[in-house]
Amino acid sequence: MERSELVELLSPEGLRLLDSLPPYESAANVVRVVSDLRKAGHAPGLVAAVLGQSRLRARAVPKFGEFAGRMLFTETGLEQATRLRVAALHAGRFAGASLNRVVDLGCGIGGDAMALAAMDLEVTAVDADEVTATVASFNLAPFENATVLNADAESVDLTGFDAAWLDPARRTAGHTNTSRLTRPEDYSPSLDFVFGLRERMPIGVKLGPGHDREQIPVDAEAQWVSVDGKLVEMALWFGSLARTGIRRSALLLGRDGSHELNAPADSEDAPVGVLGDYLYEPDGAIIRARLIGDLARSLDALMLSESIAYLTSASLVRTPFATAFRVLETLPVDEKKLRLALQERRIGTLEIKKRGVDVDPATLRTRLRLKGPESGTLVLTRAAGHRVALLVERVSALS
């Protein structure tokens, strides 16, 4: 979103028009809406601005629920914004540690700052980009205990603050068509500044879930979070925001609530064993936190192969931390023989999962020339170092 577009949007006419639009449905529906708005006499720039926001509000619902309909967004800001459910957990850390004056350095559109303010904490949200800071101001307007500054995070006077939350920008500058930054020194604020700040006050830091683990400071509690099976972030906690004795945590949030596995350090992998009747695929948060060994021991399971995140056991143990599959058959690894085996079983719809093998599932699915009314799940991986093809069926949701 450009500054001129935001000016159009924030006019009384713009906000009234935005709130009057029906829920965004599809790009095809936009043509009709544009025609109706232009016939009503609205300027092209204003029409483009409100329809862009209507589309972003629809996309924001999975992250912000019913609040999305009362917020403003930028493309990049929405992409990097914390889900409201996760932001509430962040805010709970600060409230639980009695850290009442919090500065949010790199606030983006204000998702985390909203959660902090909702906890009755005094929040100052800071963003270097003028448009983003203005959007954050709009989103935080209902909270009298929230202030927004358009400033560089590294230049803000931190006197009087109890703690800081930081979500460094990990994409190039701009509001659309940005690209991911690969070097931490290019983040804004830089990781050197971020980690240096922990010497002054308790801090929490949000980074991508695939961030280089070698860069995690030894005094951090590192927590990987997945929502409905999707890995969404790694959060680092320092000082009084970190829990005693915990350095690695995997937090899973789903429709059935939250589940956490934590440890004082990376867990040692379980031994490799023979393929049993059940195969377990750990949640991404468990894998990133390197708690596969602890999970295996809780299931009385073994690794299927060294350094591959599949577990196996002779019996089923229900757990929220992994998806379980019943092993039906071991099929040929050779592609021609595999195709014949699947044809014999009349499998026309096939889910292909793979780990530890160089296979493109989409390409392989085409080459297998699947036909038939049956469906199945194929796991391509290694067992004790050797390639295997396993026909499995998913066990009903575990709890």
Rank of each mutant, 00 (worst) to 15 (best):
A263W: 05
P12N: 00
A136Q: 09
E122R: 13
G348M: 05
L391A: 03
R213A: 15
P320K: 03
V194P: 08
S35C: 00
T178D: 01
A164V: 00
V232G: 02
I347H: 02
F195K: 02
D36P: 10
G348C: 05
R339Y: 00
E374A: 13
L350K: 06
Y278L: 09
E329A: 14
A49D: 06
V34M: 08
S307H: 15
I216L: 13
E185N: 13
L299R: 12
H90L: 11
G293C: 08
Y278N: 09
D120H: 15
L78I: 05
L370M: 12
A389F: 03
A125C: 14
P189N: 01
A222I: 08
E130Y: 12
L207G: 08
S26I: 12
A146T: 00
S4C: 00
T132W: 09
R394C: 10
P44N: 10
A322Y: 03
V225Y: 04
H211C: 12
R355W: 07
A270Q: 11
S26F: 14
L140F: 04
E154N: 02
M303Y: 15
P209W: 14
L72K: 01
D212Y: 07
F64Y: 02
T147W: 03
D266P: 03
V205P: 05
L291M: 02
S11T: 10
L99K: 07
L299T: 09
S240E: 15
L116A: 00
Q343L: 07
D157T: 03
A128V: 15
V126E: 09
T381A: 04
E185C: 10
A220D: 11
E130F: 13
G356Y: 09
A118I: 01
A87H: 07
L241Y: 10
G96T: 04
L370Q: 11
A95E: 15
P264C: 01
P23G: 12
A220C: 08
F67D: 06
D152N: 12
W224L: 02
R200T: 08
F143Q: 00
N100E: 15
L398N: 10
K371A: 12
G52Y: 04
T124S: 01
L299V: 12
